[in-house]
């Protein structure tokens, strides 16, 4: 059976025991008529179609449109749907806003809960035991390792998404980006900014 899509996980090669187990389960599910090969491939394609570009669009719109920012903060899922992002069947989305007073960081200590409708699949490090255990107890050290340190008078707030809600960070719009349009603003917002281990920076040409 062809199964050559690119797994981003580190669970091993296509010949690892886990890969063999997954193939065996797939084969059984198909044999028993519970799913078809086409359905599995469609789902893989759907999972791969979601990416942090969605989250970046939400942020750029919020920066450009105060009314949208308020709607995003009060009901993230409705705001995502408003931008045409497929979030109807997704868990609740709570967007936490960075300000000069508070910097937010997202983690899921229990597993790897992640707002997949707006960020796609989580990176390996987000699922690692090291990030999950250290982000809650030494968030500043973890952020330093990502090359980012919040200003000294900014509080760090860690959000452990332990249950039915998914979290995304709304970063601060960088200074010197007044002339950028929404799509240029979205280009500044990386996946790491939406998790909170980094912040967007103005492109050097746009800096004052």
């Amino acid at each position: 059976m062809s199964h050559d899509h690119d797994h981003e996980t580190n669970f091993g090669s296509a010949t690892s025991p886990l890969a063999a187990r997954v193939r065996a389960m797939e084969a059984l599910l198909i044999e028993k008529g519970l799913v078809t090969e086409a359905e599995i491939q469609d789902n893989v394609a759907y999972m791969d179609s979601r990416s942090p570009v969605n989250g970046a669009r939400l942020v750029a719109r919020a920066w450009a449109d105060e009314g949208f920012r308020a709607r995003l903060l009060s009901d993230g899922k409705a705001a995502a749907i408003e931008l045409g992002i497929d979030a109807v069947a997704s868990p609740e989305l709570v967007v936490v806003e960075n300000t000069p007073d508070v910097h937010n960081l997202i983690v899921c200590t229990l597993c790897s809960c992640y707002p997949r409708n707006v960020l796609g699949r989580p990176p390996d490090w987000y699922k690692s035991f090291e990030y999950r255990s250290r982000a809650v107890r030494e968030p500043r050290a973890v952020m330093r390792e990502f090359g980012f340190e919040p200003p000294g008078d900014t509080r760090v707030a860690v959000h452990d998404s332990t249950a039915d809600v998914r979290y995304m960070v709304l970063p601060i719009r960088p200074p010197g980006t007044g002339g950028l349009d929404e799509s240029e603003l979205a280009d500044l917002v990386t996946r790491d900014c939406l998790i909170g281990v980094d912040v967007p920076r103005a492109p050097s040409a746009a800096q004052a």
Partner: peptide, 27 residues
């Protein structure tokens, strides 16, 4: 389900960061 805030220093005695920093979890 509640979003509950905890003082980081009450969770981790050796926490690096100001006393007012909070961790939030859904309980």
């Amino acid at each position: 389900l509640y979003k509950v805030g905890f003082s980081q220093r009450s969770l981790w005695p050796d926490y690096e960061g100001p006393a007012e920093e909070q961790l939030y979890a859904d309980v």
